[in-house]
Amino acid sequence: MVVKVVILDYGSGNLRSAERAVARLGADVTVTADADAAMNADGLVVPGVGAFAACMSGLRSVGGDRIIGRRLAGGRPVLGICVGMQILFERGIEHGIETEGCGEWPGVVERLEAPVLPHMGWNTVQAPEGSVLFKGIDPGTRFYFVHSYGVRKWELEAGPGFAPPLVAWAEHGVPFVAAAENGPLMATQFHPEKSGDAGAALLRNWLDTLR
């Protein structure tokens, strides 16, 4: 089965590198802001680079926040990458300015406390037991990060009848959320499309959930 994936084009993110990375794994990939295409795809990838506020502005301009919400309400898979992960949270604070996010997860995106920022380069990730995204990936595997902000506290707990979200952590000065899996909503702070074989393995794991 060839799965159909849309890379949401809202003016931010490594669209073509994400497109190539997913297409190399055999998916039928389209880069578009078309709402119908984004709603009907087997999987939706939400990339993002730059400032939280600018990404949210671009996302809202194409109705991307509503698309994400509608897909998740119907149990349709969404994968956020880098700032595309950050905007899934309630709010982001940059340079003292607070911006409302999509609110799919509680929590705040804030500046990391580290001697050197941005956090740029390869780093290991502490993946949770039972992870789908990190299935078959060695614990010491490194992924490629480029960011100065992150989620330093995970605030969503399991509710009655619901499995707890699976949260992966990394550290740069302080611990931060490196990836999260919560039913159809999954996301990574690092760039799987820039993480070589490790990133390809993770994307393949995600694509397997769409079949």
Rank of each mutant, 00 (worst) to 15 (best):
F190A: 06
P164V: 09
P160E: 13
L185H: 12
G161V: 01
A170Q: 09
F176M: 13
P165H: 05
M186E: 11
L185F: 14
G183S: 12
P192G: 00
W169R: 11
P164S: 12
G159V: 04
P160N: 04
P184I: 08
P192D: 00
L156P: 00
N182G: 05
G161L: 07
P175M: 05
A187M: 01
F176V: 10
G183T: 07
V174P: 00
E157W: 02
P192Q: 00
P164K: 13
E193H: 01
W169D: 11
L185S: 13
A178Q: 06
P175V: 11
F162T: 15
H172Q: 12
V174Y: 00
P164L: 11
A170S: 15
P192V: 00
E193D: 09
V177K: 13
G183E: 12
E171A: 13
L166P: 00
P192S: 01
L156E: 15
A168L: 01
T188K: 04
G161K: 02
A163K: 14
A178M: 09
L166Y: 06
E157S: 15
A187G: 11
A179D: 08
L166C: 01
A180D: 10
F190M: 04
H172F: 05
F190N: 02
L156M: 14
P165D: 02
P164E: 12
P192K: 00
A158F: 09
E171I: 06
F190V: 08
